[in-house]
Amino acid sequence: MNEFDGRKINRKALEAIRIRAVKRVEAGESPEAVIKALGLTRSRIYEWIAKYRERGIEALRSSKASGRPPKLPGTALHKIYSLVVGRNPRQLKFPFALWTRSVVRELIRHEFAVRLSDVSVGRLLHRLGLSPQRPVRRAFQQNQPLVVDWMAKDFPRIKKMALEAGADIFFDERGVGPLRLSFWHYLGAQG
């Protein structure tokens, strides 16, 4: 008979085979005869018998596979969430002001010494309820005359200040403020 391969049998059928094999041995049949009849390996049947004698029939029942343990515990997930939601990457000494999977990956590597792929970081962020946000082209409540006025008067002054300081200007697409457009600038010399 071919050797038994439990990977090709569903969990319930495998459970029934384990119980039947052990009951036959417990009823007085030799383990060698059960091995031959069911195509088992010697180590496997003795492992099942030991489990049965130690913890009873429940030890032979199927259980859900535990799977790979997570690389990050729940406390780490909570910390990641609070860092990503509560701050911008510049506050954590990253060179850019927008959260990306790559930036979050570097944050995780730095904070927890765990290396994840961008895909794994995307899954983790999804599990935390965070999703990529695309900027709205134009807020529906936008007051166009005020925007034009701001672009003509205030923005050139801000742009000049940033240029003199060697800083970058980033726009926050969340739409904060009366214009439904907010900005902030990072002045490296002053900040």
Score class of each variant (00 low, 15 high):
M1S: 10
N2M: 10
E3R: 04
D5K: 00
R7L: 08
R11N: 00
A13P: 02
E15G: 00
A16M: 06
I17D: 10
R18C: 13
R20I: 06
A21C: 05
A21L: 05
A21N: 04
A21K: 03
R24L: 15
R24T: 03
V25E: 09
E26N: 04
E29G: 10
S30L: 12
S30D: 09
E32D: 09
A33I: 09
V34S: 05
K36W: 07
L40V: 12
L40E: 09
L40M: 07
Y46A: 15
W48G: 13
I49C: 14
K51L: 15
Y52T: 03
G56E: 13
I57D: 08
A59E: 06
R61Q: 15
S62H: 06
G67A: 13
G67V: 13
L72K: 01
P73Q: 01
L77A: 00
H78V: 07
V84M: 01
G86N: 00
N88E: 15
V103T: 08
E106D: 11
I108F: 13
I108T: 11
R109T: 07
R115P: 00
D118M: 13
D118G: 11
S120C: 05
V121R: 04
L124C: 02
R127K: 07
R127M: 02
L128A: 05
L130C: 04
S131I: 11
S131D: 14
P132T: 06
P132R: 10
P132F: 15
P132Y: 11
R134V: 08
A139F: 11
Q142G: 02
Q144L: 11
V147G: 01
V147C: 03
D149P: 00
M151I: 04
M151H: 04
K159A: 10
K160A: 07
K160Q: 10
M161A: 01
L163G: 02
G166S: 01
D168R: 01
I169E: 13
R174L: 12
V176S: 03
V176M: 05
G177T: 00
P178L: 15
P178M: 11
S182L: 03
F183K: 01
F183M: 09
W184A: 07
G188M: 00
G188N: 00
A189M: 12
G191K: 02
G191D: 11
